[in-house]
Design a protein around this nucleic acid. Structure first.
Lengths: 220, 220, 220, 220
DNA sequence: GATGAATGAGGATTCATTCAT
DNA sequence: GATGAATGAATCCTCATTCAT
């Protein structure tokens, strides 16, 4: 689909140079089309950004619901939340980075909606942490600080992980589950208990170089 | 000094809207001067940004050297590094955020120099972690991931802490020292062992509203 | 063609006010388009200038080669060079004036290239004069001074000749051939021997008022 | 005197970059003073230019009157006019160049006055040529073309002659007297008949490098 | 006499977007 | 479906000039 190619090009540029510093002609060039054609498929610069962010946040929300629905144990829930978040950030680092950093670029309409989604997502973490602490499972002094530290740590994955690097996604997920468990003061949740959430590649994430041409038909 | 007022106004806007999305007239308006006058004192938009970032990174580097020079214990060194980093991020959240996110906006000349400083800073963390792991003090599987997780977690403070909020800086520092110790698998380093580093307010950090006018003479 | 209209407007203004004193909005207004549109067709102020100068110098070079290729007699060659140069300056006075005076306004890249072309052109004169003097045909004491005097005299035509004035181009050419011959100390070369070079109007030369609308279709 | 230093700096820059492309701060820097101080002595950018041009044209006019007052012979008068003009252009090439090229930069008030002076000067040439032709001494077909060719040829000296070069001023004057005589069709006027006009260095002409420090007191 | 500070106006250029083709 | 053409608004920055010190 043409829209997704445009989104991929846009995510790549937005992640690298920032939304405001990326020109619409530049976007078109990266997508291989005229900048006017871009409006036909994607409807404008801001709409591209909001579409990408919505895709990302929807997936995060779905992932969070999955993570918390199959077990009532706060430790397992937390581990699965972290595994899902880190998985998404590792497989879609550019999309995740853009989603995390460019909300400010949106007009108030989109901004409010997306901030709402992000708040919904974070409140899933907040509730798990709260229940873990209240039931005495987690050893935490300040729940809000713990949640923020945890989320920032996980978000950070998007800043340095690259799918074409030496590290396996699962490896990184394992480490972050371990960090998260230590952070809240529980023993590490095993991969068996936290690991059946297949990480998902978003359509808007640019395809890394080492995967280029893999699933392309005769057209290319 | 006029330059510092300009830097404060700039940091405030850069943190809120991003460097690229902030206009020079807007900067002048925020600083209470004509945009042309701004060039007289600060020499241009990019120079303002690079000056702010240099100030911030220099302070971080100084802080890191202090943190690692008074004790050879990796745990204590790590705790002091974290305390210093979190202290700076908490007292200067906007400056820290801008420094963390806008390196890409600089020309290659400044960019290289500042990336070099940042790398120097991070390598202090890397060395402490490496020694802690090698001596069997820290319990870590992958040192690089641990360092990145730790740094991102600490950097994140700049994204949510506000000096005019309910949280005390010291409180946040304590929590993050605790998180860091748990992360590397050691028992928590006490405030006595990690805490004699007075956090420093940078001249370029905008003065929060609740502190405005506090130390101003009759002139204001 | 749009580019040529822009060049004509530009040459008119550059000749009148100078390159540096001519604004880009002013250029757009004179060409009947928005200043941004001007970039679409012409690519910027300096590019307009360099394009005009290149056009002019290329024509001069071509003319000089023609002038020296059909006869080996230094006197005839000189007469034909002068006839060509004066013809171009008379038919394209504004373009010639701009080409002569605004090299300094260009960046070093274009400047070097165009100075090279001008030097090539002048060396054609130099060679003819040198051969004329060496063979005893010309009576000259200092060849370099003679060449410079001759060229400046001819260039000057662009400063005062106007195609819509009372003087015929051919008349001016005849006078200058006469002057040139006297200058180097030979008897005047007849029009038959020097005159079969049709003077050429450059596309970038603004159309004088008295010729406006002459060859324009219904569209205008 | 301070004004003359400023004028010298200005003439140097105006000749090199053009009036419009020369900044007032640049002027100050070249003169070794603050741009605000420059207003104290010279009264502004345009006033500097008009002052320089007036100095130059006044000298030319004086020289023309001298040239035509001591002999009634058109040939001798012409030779002396040329000798004077070339002498001034050779000794003050930058001033002469600026005077010749930047009238357009002035406001209408100054412009009219200076164009008037220039016309007065050129009419001296016109009258001599007219009388030479009417009395049958000069062999000319078109008097106006001859005058323009002659003047442009002489003006051109300012474009290539440099006082610190290999050529002697007197040598150049001799050559141009010769050219002028040939141009109007008379035998060459001897140096004895045309040469007792000492060329004058204008106060606004920048001192060439090879003469620097020659007449400077202990102050420098 | 000399200057740093200050500014409104304007410099060239790029912007996101629309529209006729 | 796709694009070149077109533009008003905005970009960063420099301008010549004034003035209080």
């Amino acid at each position: 689909m043409r829209l997704e190619e445009i989104q991929q090009a846009a995510v790549g540029l937005f992640a690298q140079k920032g939304y405001a510093a990326t020109g619409i002609r530049e976007l078109g060039r990266a997508a291989g089309i005229n900048s006017a054609t871009l409006y036909h498929y994607a409807g404008g610069k801001e709409e591209i950004l909001s579409g990408v962010m919505r895709t990302c946040l929807e997936q995060l929300l779905r992932s969070a619901i999955d993570a918390t629905s199959s077990s009532a144990d706060p430790g397992i829930q937390l581990a699965r939340l972290v595994r899902g978040h880190v998985g998404l950030c590792a497989l879609n680092p550019l999309t995740a980075k853009v989603t995390d950093q460019e909300i400010r670029a949106l007009g108030s309409r989109d901004q409010e909606a997306l901030i709402g989604m992000r708040d919904d997502y974070e409140s899933v973490f907040a509730k798990v942490i709260e229940r873990g602490a209240r039931t005495g499972v987690f050893q935490l002094t300040d729940l809000r600080i713990a949640r923020l530290a945890l989320l920032e740590m996980c978000n950070g994955v998007a800043n340095w992980y690259r799918p074409d690097g030496r590290l396996d996604v699962t490896e990184v997920q394992d480490r972050f589950v371990e960090f998260a468990c230590r952070l809240v003061g529980i023993s590490v949740v095993s991969r068996e208990e936290s690991g059946d959430l297949p990480p998902i590649r978003l359509a808007c994430e640019p395809v890394p170089v080492h995967l280029r041409g893999q699933n392309m038909g005769a057209a290319g």
